[in-house]
Design a protein around this nucleic acid. Structure first.
Length: 462
RNA sequence: GUGGCCGUAGCUCAGUUGGUUAGAGCGCCAGGUUGUGGCCCUGGAGGUCGGGGGUUCAAGUCCCCUCGGUCACCCCA
């Protein structure tokens, strides 16, 4: 019997993993540009971190946590989400300067039945900012999430926003809502007939006809916001308007984790075919630091599901997918039929000089090596045969896009660098390939050919 | 936790009312042809038909159990 991945988990394999690495890289750059620093926390924490943060009544904690005892009997859980760990880390390390802005990406774990867009080990990327309740921070966070997705080429996105109020106005609202639900409880869907008392807000988020109908005239938070919350929310909306980010206010939007207050948001893709169409979301959690034992510190963040994001991209962003693959393609494939070990040396030198390079192994026939070169997606072959070896040279031949690349090779080999040209151009006309000294190979590619080549590539991908 | 559909080569699938050594295409490997690779030709490797039990002279085909995949409910990323 062969081993396989555990239920609900899967390997992220090439070529799809190229998209992952591209997306994560894109995200990291954006975060660095906006002054967020990488944070890496343990993948498991004391269970209490999540129980306290997410809420013991929440499904995520009640029945979805990978909770276990280690060999010393300590009660740990694999993280079902990242925010709680980061808050724990904030409280533990007490950063000197505020705001404290951090970003992350990594695996999360929830014990659920897998289905399209839902896994037991899944990946999120996101960011959190601590130490300011300025509504412009809310707008910054929302716009970062939005722009990140839009810049990746996604278009069928919908941003929904809500304000959940704060400790001043929420309790009154919840009491009112509960009273209302008491009066219509017979009309609620089966799942919520009892559970509405534990978490009344969830009922508003229920998609069943029964609950939707029963709660049509329910009180909504927007009518209960205190003045501070109302002003705060209004400022956030005004900034989003200025950014020309379109959104929809949705009074039924209640996020699944209990720590949220004030601004909450969710981004869905209408093009995602599965039932799990929320790509990401987030919001404020001004009370969370305190409830994990820290000083009163407002905070806000968002997270995005990588599997869902990548599947959106694969559906509707061919340009980005192409670019992601291209960034991993070898430019050069080394073909060596001399069994002299020359390829090993050239491979090492070229790769260390910064060029994506690939090769074959096992001294196979030239035909086999060319086939491997084709499959690798490399743009040119660098061939070392017996003739070349005796002259200490290599032949360069275009593999893809031959007409253009031959022209580029032709120009490159004639171009002077440091007062001389690298190649012997005499053979070019007839065979469409050039021969250059091995000692010139790094200069030829790095200084002459690749600069032209990158321009050719970027023109081609436009 | 509940339910629908599905499990035959690396991949996509054929396998007729149960009947001899289980097939195809693609992919892979080797050889030939070739303008040093892409096309074409020849050959080859690779399957305990998810696993276990049962019915039968005979099971990939029928029955039961089980494991896995997938989608949906629920929940959420």
């Amino acid at each position: 019997m062969n081993f396989r991945t555990p239920v609900g988990t899967n390997d992220i394999l090439p070529p799809s993993s190229r998209v992952w690495s591209y997306v994560i890289d894109h995200f990291s750059r954006m975060c660095v540009r906006t002054n967020y620093d990488l944070i890496i926390t343990p993948i498991f924490e004391e269970s209490g971190v999540f129980q306290r943060a997410v809420g013991v009544d929440n499904d995520v904690v009640r029945k979805e946590m990978y909770q276990f005892q280690d060999r010393s009997g300590r009660d740990y859980s694999l993280r079902p989400e990242q925010t709680a760990s980061i808050v724990r880390s904030y409280v533990e390390s007490r950063p000197k300067y505020l705001p404290w802005k951090v970003y992350y990406w990594g695996p999360m774990f929830r014990y659920e039945r897998p289905q399209a867009g839902r896994y037991r080990q899944f990946y999120q990327l996101g960011l959190e900012a601590f130490g300011s309740s300025d509504p412009s921070l809310d707008a910054e966070i929302i716009s970062l999430a939005w722009d990140f997705l839009v810049d990746l080429g996604l278009s069928d996105l919908e941003l929904r926003l809500n304000s959940l109020g704060d400790e001043a106005c929420r309790p009154g609202y919840v009491a009112d809502l509960t009273k209302f639900l008491d009066s219509v409880k017979d009309k609620l869907c089966g799942a919520h007939q009892d559970s509405y008392q534990r978490n009344p807000l969830r009922v508003l988020d229920c998609k069943t006809e029964a609950c939707l109908e029963a709660t049509q005239d329910a009180p909504f938070q927007r009518d209960f916001l205190c003045e501070d919350c109302r002003d705060h929310f209004k400022s956030v909306l005004e900034l989003l308007d200025r950014f020309a980010i379109s959104y929809r206010q949705d009074s039924r939007l209640v996020r699944g984790l209990d720590y949220y207050n004030r601004t909450t948001f969710e981004i869905c893709s209408t093009s995602l075919e599965s039932a799990q169409n929320a790509i990401g979301g987030g919001g404020r959690y001004d009370g969370l630091v305190r409830s994990l034992g820290g000083p009163d510190t407002p905070a806000i963040g968002f997270s995005i599901g990588l599997e869902r994001l990548v599947s959106c991209l694969e559906n509707q962003s061919p340009v980005v997918i192409g670019r992601a693959h291209q960034s991993h393609e070898p430019i050069i494939f080394l073909i060596d039929v001399t069994s002299s070990g020359k390829a090993s040396q050239v491979f090492r030198d070229l790769s260390r000089s910064g060029i994506n390079v690939a090769r074959d192994y096992g001294d196979r026939s030239m035909k086999a090596q060319f086939k491997a070169a084709d499959r690798s997606g490399a743009w040119v072959a660098v061939i070392i045969g017996d003739d070349e070896l005796s002259r200490n040279s290599a032949t360069i031949r275009a593999l893809r896009d031959q007409e253009k690349l031959r022209a580029l090779l032709q120009v490159s080999v004639r171009e002077k660098y440091d007062g001389r040209s690298c190649g012997r151009q005499d053979e070019l006309e007839s065979s469409g390939q050039v021969e250059i000294d091995i000692s010139d190979i790094e200069v030829f590619f790095n200084k002459v050919f690749i600069p032209k080549f990158s321009r050719h590539i970027s023109l081609a991908s436009q």
